[in-house]
């Protein structure tokens, strides 16, 4: 693996670390299986991409993308809390609805710029010549791009990790964690659990959409398909981090999620660069299949290992 390729994987790993922290909030803290992620990731990308296409300040564009994700999360939370629709179903409904919205958003730029007569959806939006948050730091021949991008994303990740932990240790954050683990107790302590679920979903999907916003700025285009498997990648990172670091404290658990995401990307990179795998015809199109298998392994292996250990303990 070349150094540049390594940095590229690191960059994507760091972007997905933000996504994984979002998934961590819904899955682990709120115990809410949230498939909205698969749509809020491209939603963030689409909104951010549209803003960039229209020449809006990249930082503002990133912010708008994030807010879009927050709204998606609020929608899912609202369907569950106020309309009593099952968690999984609420998130799938929002995900399906957002697919159309994402297509529309990706097509809106060309219509607003009068390149199209009617507002039709589009599966992608090229952003090759637009400004991104990375542009000011990249020199003219773009030789430092492969360093600047992961560095800036790294700063994002550290800032979010710090803010998230600060939040989780506030009264609100504690109320959110209590809501996720023991609703009855939370209510008895006067916590409006419904609002907490909606707040948590907003933060979760906001982070996921922020990941999407950063992702399209490193890719040079926004695409409808980038969301496929977001939730599984997030979960893979969480489980990988958990099983390797087995952290107890909140700051350490969130840190392990970040490391999990980076390690996951490196594993994928190594797997795809593997000559043996290449020889038997495995390529980047098999990424999602590899991910699915990885998640199953990560879910099952620790339990099997424990079983095996306890069995050995008994016979000894």
């Amino acid at each position: 693996m070349s150094f540049e390729f390594f940095l590229g994987s690191l960059e994507i790993g760091l972007i997905y670390a933000i996504v994984s922290l979002g998934v961590f909030i819904s899955f682990r803290l709120l115990d809410f299986p949230d498939l909205t992620a698969d749509a809020s990731f491209p939603l963030g990308g689409a909104i951010c991409g549209l803003c960039l296409y229209l020449g809006i300040n990249p930082w503002l564009a990133t912010f708008f993308g994030t807010v879009g994700g927050c709204i998606a999360g609020i929608m899912t939370g609202w369907l569950y809390v106020r309309l009593n629709i099952l968690q999984l179903l609420s998130s799938i409904i929002v995900m399906i609805g957002l697919y159309s919205i994402n297509l529309r958003i990706l097509g809106l730029g060309k219509y607003l710029n009068d390149e199209m007569d009617t507002w039709v959806g589009s599966p992608n939006l090229p952003l090759l010549s637009t400004n991104t948050i990375f542009s000011p730091f990249i020199n003219e021949d773009a030789t430092n791009q492969y360093i600047v991008q992961p560095l800036l994303v790294f700063i994002f990740v550290i800032a979010i990790w710090f803010l998230l932990n600060a939040f989780l240790n506030t009264q609100k954050g504690l109320a959110l964690r209590a809501t996720g683990t023991n609703q009855r107790m939370a209510k008895a302590q006067g916590i409006a659990t419904g609002r907490m679920v909606i707040l948590g979903m907003a933060i979760s999907n906001g982070l996921i959409a922020l990941g999407g916003s950063l992702f399209i700025q490193t890719q040079g285009s926004a695409d409808i398909t980038i969301g496929v498997g977001t939730i599984v990648i997030g979960l893979a990172s969480i489980i990988l981090g958990e099983s390797i670091f087995s952290a107890k404290r909140m700051w350490a658990i969130t840190l392990s999620v970040i490391f999990g995401s980076i390690l996951y990307r490196l594993f994928i990179a190594i797997a795809l660069g593997n000559e043996l795998l290449k020889d038997i015809g495995i390529g980047s199109e098999d990424l999602n299949l590899i991910t699915a298998i990885l998640v199953v392994l990560a879910l099952v292996l620790p339990k099997q290992l424990k079983k095996w250990k306890s069995k050995r303990g008994k016979s000894a």
Binding site: F167, N169, T170, Q171, K172, G173, L174, Q189, G190
Partner: peptide
């Protein structure tokens, strides 16, 4: 903090 609004201040 039972029965009070949770705020964005450190819980402890």
């Amino acid at each position: 903090n039972r029965g009070k609004r949770s705020r964005l201040i450190p819980a402890l």
